[in-house]
Write a protein that binds this DNA or RNA. Structure first.
Lengths: 219, 219
DNA sequence: ACCTGAACACCGTTCAAGT
DNA sequence: ACCTGAACACCGTTCAAGT
């Protein structure tokens, strides 16, 4: 057949199609052959636009992460607490829309531009709000731990809904088989109370920090 | 060759060997053929002891999760805050000893006995300490989010150490290439400050809760 | 430059055959 | 019951061949 007059593929189209495959049928359904079929092309063609399956998956994750809202860190009106809260919710929502890619977050964040963009925005926002740089780095990391962990835990299926699993064995879980139905509410509730606790705890730390400097902290 | 006089394999030996393979060469190195070779046996033999590769991986994750210390929840001396702190550290340590399995946490926690044992112990400890059952459920979930998220983020490699990646593009990250060397300290610091913030925030919530009931909460 | 089919070295899993 | 080798339907990736 040979080379077509106009390219049939583009990196962007490949990445976008890969995401729809993952969304529809999960990470393990994503293969070069399946993806190529979806694009109306033969398997090896992909290698003209993408160097490796792993790199492609990184790119897919990056587009998802790119949907996270970061505008709150440049809004002068918002204080760091509400900025952090809004950002965490937006981050979680972005992952919730594509639950199947969450396990892939474990690989290669260093090579994903949008992950760096997030780290940059959060760090900048916190430093502008008066946090010392070392603390701002830690807070960026710890907030990411919480949000990605909630995505990892939330959307994986939870407790078995078969009551007999718990009988005898797990004394405190006698009603856990009911959790399955309420998984959504529980995950949302856990996320929100965790977020509140985290921000309350950080506010406490911030106050201590300000008073240590003698109460003359700017902003 | 046929059936040996004494079985060459056992489920436990398979699971243990699978863990050493994953520890040594990562999740993607774990295959039936590689694992069988490591066990001095042919590939299909595994299927006499294990129904599927996925179930095997669940079992591997469960042995790792089984190393988490839960004794602090039955120690009467310890208050819920320090119990939660000690448990979170032990949980994180267990995962840190086997960083390569962390991505596999995303699958099927419902079928892992030791995950349920953990949920049971945490829930029981919090209820005993005076937390309402609904809150105890949430706290168990949110602590798991934080710990697993820290494992997911920590041990994946972090920021590129090539300064040119950041130049111009990420205004606040001009020194981020230095982070790679300090990854360990930063992860530890972020985990500890996150843990502090979480516990401080929950303590605040607990106080509010106690005073709402009229200050007559037992224990 | 960008597609194709053939080929290579892998997978997980099934199954008949052996003891 | 528990191992074996052969076989099936898959993988990711390379590469020569076509335009």
């Amino acid at each position: 057949m040979g080379r077509p007059r106009r390219p049939m593929l583009s990196r962007d189209r490949i990445v976008a199609t890969a995401l729809t495959v993952v969304d529809a049928d999960g990470l393990e359904a994503l293969s070069t052959r399946r993806l190529a079929a979806e694009l109306g092309v033969s398997g090896p063609s992909l290698y003209n636009h993408v160097t490796t399956m792993e790199e492609l998956l990184d790119a897919v994750v990056d587009t998802v992460v790119g949907e996270v809202d970061l505008s709150m860190f440049s809004d002068v009106g918002r204080d760091w607490r509400t900025a952090l809260r809004d950002w965490a919710r937006s981050y979680r929502s972005a992952l919730a829309e594509h639950p199947n890619i969450v396990p892939a977050l474990a690989h290669g964040m260093g090579h994903r531009p949008n992950s760096l963009k997030i780290a940059d925005a959060v760090f900048g926002g916190l430093v502008d709000a008066g946090w010392p740089r070392a603390q701002a780095t830690r807070i960026g990391a710890l907030m990411r731990y919480f949000v990605t962990g909630s995505a990892l835990g939330s959307f994986a299926r939870g407790f078995p809904d078969d009551a007999s699993v718990y009988a005898g064995r797990y004394p405190h879980l006698s009603e856990a088989h009911l959790l399955a139905e309420h998984q959504r509410e529980i995950d949302d509730g856990a996320f929100e109370t965790g977020l509140d606790a985290l921000l309350d705890g950080l506010a406490l730390k911030f106050e201590r920090l300000v008073s240590d400097v003698g109460g003359t902290r700017p902003r």
